[in-house]
Write a protein that binds this DNA or RNA. Structure first.
Lengths: 128, 128
DNA sequence: GATAGGGGTTCCAGTCTCTGGAAGGTCAAG
DNA sequence: CTTGACCTTCCAGAGACTGGAACCCCTATC
């Protein structure tokens, strides 16, 4: 398969796939003309990566997950640990965003939003 | 005030303050020795920026908010529009993260997390 | 006057994960 | 032989800093 084919089938842009090769996540073979030549197993990896990335795993997490994915003798606890760590990071992010949302929505609610200059939002940002 | 003083009083690192000058958010004067010389108004701006950034506003939003902050003839509706736009982006991010969280926590819950290789997490990332 | 320290300055590179674009090679169809 | 759709590589930029190197300045002490 050429890169366009795997791109379509994995849902990843060609640019991203080249990048993943660059950083060593996949290592497609090369055809005589220099084109990348992907095996089914490469496609599986890329699909896996696409899913993992869409769940927000970092590239380094993906690298570790991919290694476990490839390792028939893995322990599921290793996978679970990575996933739980990521889950904790997601929870933290949600909490941070919720706190911002809370503060900001208060300010927005109090702002008249008319053509006068008085603005509780700016006041909130100015002081404390 | 030197940069160290405004850094302490605004809560922003000196590096960040220099960066903000670089991109034109503040324009401190210069002392004869080449040191940046900050006025009270610069400190106010930096404090304002620190608060806005901590609420997740982008630098470009901050630039716009700062302009409104400085403009005595602003309309509060302009401020509110920016804040509402940002609020919508926060909500979107929270929704995205909640969806990830949902999927991921399902997978984590189903994973035994022992020393066997069978892993619903990897299966979830592979297929589907 | 020399020196030590704790400021300050600039500039370059790296973070993270792509993404866009330029310049050019390859292939199949007409 | 040309066209157009592929493919290749390499460089730069995004956002918002952050670290580090190399160097200057100021004050205080010996």
């Amino acid at each position: 398969m050429n890169i366009g084919d795997v791109a379509e089938r994995s849902g990843l842009p060609p640019k991203t796939i080249r990048y993943y090769e660059d950083i060593g996540l996949v290592t497609p073979q090369r055809a005589a003309n220099g084109y990348r030549s992907f095996r089914e197993s490469d496609l599986h990896k890329l699909t896996f990566l696409g899913h993992a990335r869409s769940l927000g795993f970092s590239i380094e997490d993906c690298r570790a997950l991919l290694a476990l994915y490839e390792d028939e003798t893995r322990a599921s606890s290793d996978v679970k640990r990575i996933a739980q760590g990521h889950l904790a990071r997601i929870d933290q992010k949600i909490a941070d965003l919720a706190a911002m949302r809370e503060t900001l929505s208060h300010l927005v609610r109090e702002c008249a939003g008319d053509d006068r200059p008085d603005c509780p939002i700016l006041q909130g940002l100015e002081g404390n």
